[in-house]
Simulated scan of single mutants.
Amino acid sequence: MEFIWEAPTEAETIAFANALAQLVGPGTVLAVDGDLGAGKTRFAQAFAAAIGVPGIVNSPTYTIIKEYVGRALPFYHMDVYRLSLAEADELGLDEYFHGEGVTLVEWASIIQQILPLERLHIRIETTGPVSRKIICSPVGQKYEEWCRQLERKQLEHVTRRNRQHESKHK
């Protein structure tokens, strides 16, 4: 199963982050991949805002992990680009995956072997200067159900957007 959210604008990427944020709970793991500049950190920032993390969320490229306090859940933002699998394993990053918060891992495919058995893999692809294709591959039943819910939310979002567009042009 795979779910695709087309994001022709940055606002649509933010809409996806908002929709996803409504589903998460303790122990959620979002494994995010994409080329350099695809928008992984921008997505992480939008997601963090959607779960109530105040202030600025920066890429943890050099610090590897940053912890934030969200409205209802802690947010653990990881960037493992500069790590080997062995280094990630030694750092005990996997302890965050089963914690009280939501973990978002940028460049997750690098540490795929230590990711939890259940997770939502999100691949962000650049399709234009600001447009993105967000491909969700669920691993586990919970995340499969989330993709079905995201599909419904996307349909509702697109319908609402089209209605707004039509009402502006009448």
Score class of each variant (00 low, 15 high):
residue 161 R to L: 15
residue 76 Y to M: 01
residue 165 H to M: 05
residue 161 R to Q: 15
residue 146 W to K: 02
residue 150 L to N: 09
residue 87 E to V: 08
residue 119 R to I: 01
residue 157 H to T: 11
residue 94 D to S: 14
residue 167 S to I: 05
residue 88 A to F: 08
residue 137 S to N: 13
residue 140 G to P: 05
residue 126 T to F: 00
residue 103 T to C: 09
residue 151 E to N: 05
residue 129 P to G: 04
residue 123 R to Y: 11
residue 128 G to D: 11
residue 109 S to A: 11
residue 76 Y to L: 05
residue 133 K to Q: 10
residue 142 K to Y: 03
residue 117 L to Q: 10
residue 159 T to Q: 15
residue 140 G to M: 07
residue 123 R to V: 01
residue 156 E to I: 03
residue 112 Q to A: 14
residue 122 I to H: 14
residue 144 E to M: 10
residue 83 L to N: 07
residue 122 I to A: 12
residue 141 Q to T: 11
residue 99 G to I: 02
residue 114 I to G: 06
residue 129 P to F: 06
residue 101 G to S: 04
residue 156 E to S: 02
residue 91 L to R: 03
residue 157 H to E: 14
residue 164 Q to N: 01
residue 167 S to H: 09
residue 110 I to F: 09
residue 124 I to E: 11
residue 138 P to E: 07
residue 143 Y to S: 05
residue 117 L to P: 10
residue 139 V to N: 15
residue 164 Q to D: 08
residue 140 G to E: 01
residue 121 H to W: 08
residue 106 E to L: 06
residue 131 S to W: 13
residue 125 E to T: 01
residue 152 R to I: 02
residue 89 D to N: 08
residue 142 K to D: 08
residue 103 T to L: 04
residue 90 E to I: 00
residue 130 V to I: 05
residue 158 V to C: 05
residue 84 S to C: 09
residue 111 I to T: 06
residue 164 Q to A: 02
residue 150 L to F: 06
residue 103 T to I: 00
residue 116 P to S: 05
residue 85 L to N: 03
residue 144 E to A: 10
residue 162 N to V: 06
residue 147 C to W: 09
residue 164 Q to S: 06
residue 124 I to N: 04
residue 82 R to E: 04
residue 129 P to Q: 12
residue 106 E to R: 08
residue 85 L to T: 01
